[in-house]
């Protein structure tokens, strides 16, 4: 469970080009659900996702995560509360949360060019210092699962759009995070590939993941297995749908 209370995010504060991208959002997201943030371009969806995913800190307000979502994080002491407020944690802990708790699927996939599919997928595991053999086995399993087994040694720029998307998903899953965050995941995909993507998302939900997607693509927010659709407009939460 993720709880946002009165979260605001402004850019260039105190300067003439000051801009409030997220203005006072109260929101509770349940675990093991597919939630879609829906709204026009510039409404603040990406900003909201980056706040939830601990990539940026809110200007004011609090974001709390259920303790069990944080896994075996080194910085958590036994006596901690059932909920952990992440907004005030130091940068190092935020990095650790990003690494273990969230898997990110970016709009432009954000794969690193020039290195192989396998290496791209291994990247999130490097800071953990796990045994190479172990993580490599997991990467190969994931690649097989996403029908990328024969593309392991291919460079990412050789991939088709659908393959690149699946590599991005596999990378997000490498550290087995409980929450998957996807920003406009279907923006560069045709209808067929978008449908395949949503099928994968449904499968991940079946495995117990919590999924948060920002999109204004009807193929995403109108999909039957989406649990909750939240409308975002001008940095504010609007009406809800399902």
């Amino acid at each position: 469970m993720i709880r946002l209370s009165n979260v605001r995010k402004g850019f260039n504060l105190g300067r003439p080009n000051e801009f409030i991208a997220v203005g006072g959002v109260d929101l509770t997201l349940e675990g093991n659900r597919i939630t879609v943030l829906k709204g026009p371009s510039g409404s603040g969806k990406t900003t909201l996702l980056s706040l939830i995913g601990c990539m940026a800190r809110p200007t004011s307000g609090r974001i709390s995560l259920l303790r069990s979502l944080l896994g075996h994080n080194g910085f958590l002491k036994d006596g901690d509360m059932p909920e952990v407020e992440v907004t005030s944690l130091p940068e190092r802990f935020l990095t650790e949360i990003r690494r273990r708790t969230f898997g990110f699927i970016f709009q432009q996939f954000n794969l690193i060019k020039g290195i192989t599919v396998l290496e791209n997928i291994l990247l999130p595991t490097y800071p953990l210092g796990k045994k190479h053999r172990v993580v490599r086995k997991r990467a190969e399993e994931l690649l097989d699962m996403f029908a990328l087994g024969d593309r392991t040694a291919a460079r990412v720029e050789w991939l088709s759009g659908g393959e690149a998307q699946r590599v991005a998903i596999a990378r997000a899953l490498m550290n087995d995070p409980p929450i998957i965050i996807a920003d406009e995941p279907t923006a560069h995909l045709d209808s067929k590939l978008s449908g395949e993507f949503m099928d994968i998302i449904a499968r991940l939900k079946g495995q117990g993941k919590t999924i948060i997607i920002a999109s204004h693509d009807p193929l995403v927010f109108a999909a039957p297995f989406v649990d909750r659709v939240i409308a975002v407009r001008d940095g504010m939460i609007g009406g809800e749908g399902a």
Binding site: M55, T95, R99, R100, F104, I112, Y126, R171
Partner: peptide
């Protein structure tokens, strides 16, 4: 690339 690495959980020191 550095931005991507940080986003997927690399620390500044990494």
């Amino acid at each position: 690339e550095i931005g991507i690495l940080k986003a997927i959980g690399w620390e500044t020191s990494d």
